[in-house]
Simulated scan of single mutants.
Amino acid sequence: MGVKVQKRKQSSGKNFCYFVVYKPYGMLSQFSKEGEKPTLADLGFAFPRDAYPVGRLDHDSEGLLLITNDKSLNSKLLSPKNHYKKTYWVQVDREISDEAIEQLRKGVIININGEYKTRPAIVNRIVEPTLPERVPPIRFRVNVPTSWIELSITEGKNRQVRKMTAAVGFPTLRLIRSAIGPLYIDNMNSGDVKILEEAEIATLFY
Rank of each mutant, 00 (worst) to 15 (best):
I201D: 05
Y184K: 15
I195Y: 01
I138A: 13
S147V: 00
Q103L: 12
L77D: 00
G26E: 04
K86M: 06
K76V: 10
T203E: 11
L43E: 07
L65T: 10
L77K: 07
K33R: 14
W148L: 12
V90Y: 02
T87Q: 10
Q160E: 14
I112H: 09
Y88K: 08
Y88I: 06
V144H: 10
E155K: 13
L73V: 00
T39H: 00
P145N: 14
S61R: 00
S72D: 13
T203Q: 14
L64F: 07
I185T: 01
V193C: 03
E115S: 09
E62I: 00
I112T: 11
D70W: 08
L173Y: 00
N158G: 02
G169F: 03
Q160C: 07
L65V: 09
N82R: 10
I110N: 06
Q30M: 12
V142Q: 12
A166S: 11
K4C: 06
R134N: 06
I153F: 01
L73K: 08
K85F: 08
M27E: 04
L204W: 00
N15K: 13
R8H: 10
V54H: 07
F47H: 01
K37V: 13
Y116T: 11
I176D: 14
R134S: 00
V135C: 06
T68H: 05
L57R: 05
L43Q: 06
K76P: 07
Y206C: 11
S75R: 13
M164S: 04
T165R: 07
K163G: 05
I122S: 15
A121K: 04
G181A: 14
V135H: 05
I110P: 09
K163P: 07
L175E: 04
P136Q: 04
K4V: 13
T118S: 07
E200I: 00
N82D: 13
K85Y: 09
V90R: 00
L204P: 03
T68Y: 01
E62K: 08
N189P: 11
Y206M: 08
V92D: 04
K9Y: 04
K81H: 11
R125N: 05
G181C: 13
S75V: 15
I195H: 09
G55Y: 15
F16A: 12
E198K: 11
V144N: 02
F47R: 05
